[in-house]
Amino acid sequence: MKPIQSLLFACLFWCAASAHAKKITIAAAADLKFAMDEIVTSFQQANARAEVDVVYGSSGKFYTQIQQGAPYDLYFSADIGFPRELAKAGLAASEARLYAFGRIVLWSAKLDASKMTLANLTDAKITRIAIANPKHAPYGKRAEEALRASGLWEKVEPKIVYGENIAHTAELVQTGNAQVGIIALALAVNPKLASKGGYWLIPDHLYEPLEQGFILTKRAEGNTLARRFADYMGSKPARAIMTKYGFVLPGEVVGK
């Protein structure tokens, strides 16, 4: 073969290969950090050689990035509102699907938070309480709602510090810079955090349900691997992992 022909051949081959992309990129809310890692591993075991990259961050940031054409195939938001908006704007290849309800907990790395309630936050010994920024983080919004519903917001507000997202909030508590924090149950049950302190589940009647939703983005249209991953979220192994991390799944009863 002449060099030019072999080059064309290589190009053709490469194009054909990329059309059957064996790789997807997922943008996931920070509360999914540990759960999604496990789901991806289990998905890869079931789908040999599937390459899956996950990027964790705040739901709002991903929303903006996808609007600007970010190369994500799936978008798992902590608030179904964002994927719904994207679907409405024609930027999705699927409806926004509800995948879980999030729960919030009081967590501390030092104190035994399992013996605490929100009322303990007024203790003089507690000087810093970390929550995610309610302005744009869904978990932060729910934390503020729970504190307001318990009539504690005015009393504890001067002690509150704001994390950029829910994982950063957990980090502020883990390093001891805040004695307690309100974080996602999904993070608190991870062995790394569960080995320290303890957590107390905040009653869900104190805050609006944290409906978490995902979409396939416009970019993933026709991408079979992305579609397979979306379907996998409804599978038994994936649901078991989500349950293990404290998520309440669609179709289950929210409550104790």
Partner: peptide, 26 residues
């Protein structure tokens, strides 16, 4: 600032963080 500030208005919420928050909140 974002990592150690805690985003407190008037204390640690500087202009660059405020812009970031505006963008995040759309």
């Amino acid at each position: 600032v974002l990592m150690i500030g805690g985003n407190l208005p008037g204390v640690t919420r500087v202009a660059s963080v405020q812009i970031y928050d505006h963008v995040e909140a759309l």
